[in-house]
């Protein structure tokens, strides 16, 4: 059981990475404590809570059910927005790729909206949707939606014309062409779009939680990890801010990892 761990530790490249991480943590610790230890705090980093303080604050959190509820809330929001983005974005992208009229009609308007950051939509979303949850879901959806559509379009447009010619010469119908040529060709692009979209979604969810929960809107217990961070800040529990940040980082990393595994499964054929 220990063999793989041993192999990992003695592997030169991973041991280098480990050394660097340890040095990074030591550097962080020293800088954070510099105010107390040396009397002169290091600028900026000096005010960040030390790693040891963070761990100290984190341990009681692990048994706090409110903490884990925050996790669940954020994850739920991320996946709702993400799934909507996939469910609507993939067909939408395919429609634009296949139908020239639709593309000509819709794409320019789409491109006009795209540079508007999803968060700029928060006020409009709050006005429009009846509940806070739906507003967050809408904004989250937007973030991933653009990425997925662009990626699907790119993937569909890059299909080698020869595949279509080959299919036609073998007498395939429109539906068949779609099912057997277009769809498999865009799956890798969807996978890429999904990975990138997931990262954006997390950003938007955290931001939305902070804005709607902690912004001047003051909507009460919004919940979620973003709210957790903002709340910790307002309560001057700086250690918990970092706890929250790291928690989000882990949660985001796991979500992206999950999406990547699913994506890899569907694109097995692209690798030799």
């Amino acid at each position: 059981m220990f063999r793989p761990i041993q192999k990992f530790l003695f592997n030169r490249s991973s041991s280098r990475g480990l050394i660097a991480i340890i040095i990074f943590l030591l550097f962080w610790e020293v800088c954070s404590r510099s105010g107390v230890w040396f009397g002169i705090p290091v600028p900026w980093i000096g005010k960040v809570p030390a790693p040891t303080a963070v761990v100290h604050a984190w341990i009681p959190m692990l048994s706090d059910s409110g903490y884990w509820t925050s996790w669940l809330l954020s994850i739920k929001r991320v996946y709702i927005g993400f799934i909507f983005a996939m469910v609507i974005g993939i067909p939408f992208g395919l429609l634009l790729a296949i139908n020239r009229t639709a593309y000509g009609l819709i794409f320019p308007t789409f491109e006009v909206f795209r540079p508007i950051p999803p968060l700029a939509w928060v006020p409009v979303a709050i006005i429009f949707w009846p509940t806070n949850e739906m507003s967050i879901a809408f904004v989250t959806f937007l973030g991933a939606f653009y990425t997925i559509v662009i990626n699907v379009l790119g993937g569909a447009q890059a299909i080698d014309q020869r595949f279509f010619q080959a299919a036609r010469s073998m007498g395939s119908s429109q539906g068949d062409v779609f099912k057997r040529i277009v769809f498999p060709a865009v799956v890798p692009s969807i996978a890429v779009g999904a990975s990138v979209g997931m990262g954006i979604t997390w950003n938007v969810v955290i931001a939305a939680e902070m804005i709607s929960g902690g912004g001047s809107d003051g909507g009460g217990k919004g919940g979620g990890l973003g709210f957790f961070i903002w709340d910790s800040y307002l309560n001057n529990s700086y250690d918990l801010i970092v706890v929250g940040m790291i928690s989000i980082g882990i949660a985001g990393y796991l979500s992206s990892g999950l999406i990547r595994i699913i994506g890899d499964h569907f694109t097995k054929w692209t690798r030799r």
Binding site: V48, G199, W202, N203, I206, A207, M210, L225, G226, I229, W230, S232, Y233, I241, V242, G244, M245, I246, I248, G249, I250, G252, Y253, S256
Partner: peptide, 10 residues
């Protein structure tokens, strides 16, 4: 992986 906005309070 830490979302940019998670850095706001820090």
């Amino acid at each position: 992986p830490i979302p940019i906005l998670a850095w706001v309070p820090l």
